[in-house]
Design a protein around this nucleic acid. Structure first.
Lengths: 229, 229
DNA sequence: ATGCGTTTCAAACTTACGTTTTAACTTGAT
DNA sequence: ATCAAGTTAAAACGTAAGTTTGAAACGCAT
């Protein structure tokens, strides 16, 4: 089915706006980010990507080497700044000596996620969902590369929460952090279990600030609940 | 072509011979369940399935019609009993007039999930992960079929939690249920956000009872937290 | 044993995938 | 203008995917 291709730039007349379109690599990354989220890695073909990015099919392999390497590039472009932002917020809280405030610690993770969700290009919000997909799909990328590169992330938060909640056993604290990050993460990813079973009041209204308003009290309450051991 | 659903012919008469291998359909379903979880729907080929199930390649299309229909069969085989079990537990709690006990309501969802996780054939535990994957991947099956079929699930729980937590605004309650089911669901699915960044203490030890022991206090604390509005 | 509907089987079909190739085009320094 | 490096282009390659086909094998009442 070779349709007539209107994509052919017969002559370049795009000097109308100064908003020049990004270069080939960036265009591929942006489109890939969206398509990987919408359809998943396997179900997203290079032909879908290159068509929507309005680049040649071979451009992906030229600029990134392979489809797998493209995925890694899409992923790392957003993850590294996110981790850095969280740790930076954590630094600030610890420098102020306010590490005993659980809600403040929670916010050091929420604020960078919130910033992502508010990304005007929408790419940031997509990335949280991509991260979520990649997590449940148990990608090799997460198991190997990232776990080695950002293991400090968990260590820093474990240390901080241990100071804020010294009454909790180490194992109990690990469980609560597990639950806390799980619910925060899925909230920003927009994963709504209840949505499966019909319209949900919450996820339809995807105002990031509204998420935080309800999310923080829930998470903090779970974290500071008295130990049952 | 046949629209009949004779899929329950599994535990029919095979008791004469001990350890008789299940019939073709069941074998396909069992293997598909595992492979869909391990590799995802798109990355699982019919050739992988039929090879491991030791059936002919054409058997899938003969018994289920298509790969998509196979996925739906794999999914529905476990989901319908799970939903039914939850609602049955909910019935019992309401019949006893103990609907104001939040922890008891939480357990009406957790107990069936726990039973799945303890399924000796391991298929149940796999299914929770499959449900998780399918949710994150935003499958057409979930958006269309299930949301219409099991919308009563959310309604029943919303009603029950409203009775247990009458002080909460309807919107606030919806958010908390959203968070609560999210964390419960991901706990049983074994999705550990922190696992990405290195070894996690919690998920490696996948004792379902241990999950529940730590999960319930966290969830209940988040649900019953005082309203901030 | 025979006939018939159901199931299994090997093989082929069509399509789409990721990747490679080779040539053409652009760009900037000489 | 020329050359080389960098980039884009169109086409083809080899493979693997889901599905279809038609015959063989099976189960079982007659």
């Amino acid at each position: 089915m070779d349709k007539a291709k209107p994509l052919l730039k017969s002559h370049k007349v795009e000097e109308t706006m100064e908003a020049s379109r990004p270069d080939t690599s960036t265009r591929i990354l942006d489109v890939s980010e969206r398509l990987f989220v919408e359809h998943g890695f396997e179900a997203t073909s290079l032909r879908m990507i290159t068509q929507q990015a309005e680049v040649n099919l071979a451009a992906v392999n030229y600029h990134f080497g392979s489809k797998d390497a493209l995925f890694e590039s899409v992923f790392m472009r957003r993850l590294a700044p996110l981790i850095a932002a969280c740790l930076s917020e954590l630094d600030a809280v610890e420098a102020d000596g306010r590490v005993s405030d659980v809600a403040l610690l929670v916010m050091t993770f929420i604020r960078p996620c919130l910033a992502l969700s508010k990304d005007p290009s929408r790419g940031g919000a997509l990335f949280v969902r991509l991260l979520s997909r990649t997590l449940v799909e148990n990608h090799r990328l997460l198991r190997e590369t990232i776990s080695q590169q950002y293991s400090v992330f968990v260590q820093r938060y474990a240390h901080a929460f241990h100071q804020a909640l010294p009454q909790l056993e180490e194992e109990e604290l690990a469980w609560r952090m597990h639950f806390a990050f799980s619910v925060m993460f899925n909230a920003f990813a927009g994963n709504d279990v209840l949505k499966i079973f019909g319209r949900s009041h919450v996820v339809t209204a995807r105002d990031p600030d509204l998420i935080v308003k309800h999310l923080v009290p829930f998470v903090v309450a779970g974290l500071v609940a008295p130990d049952h051991g």
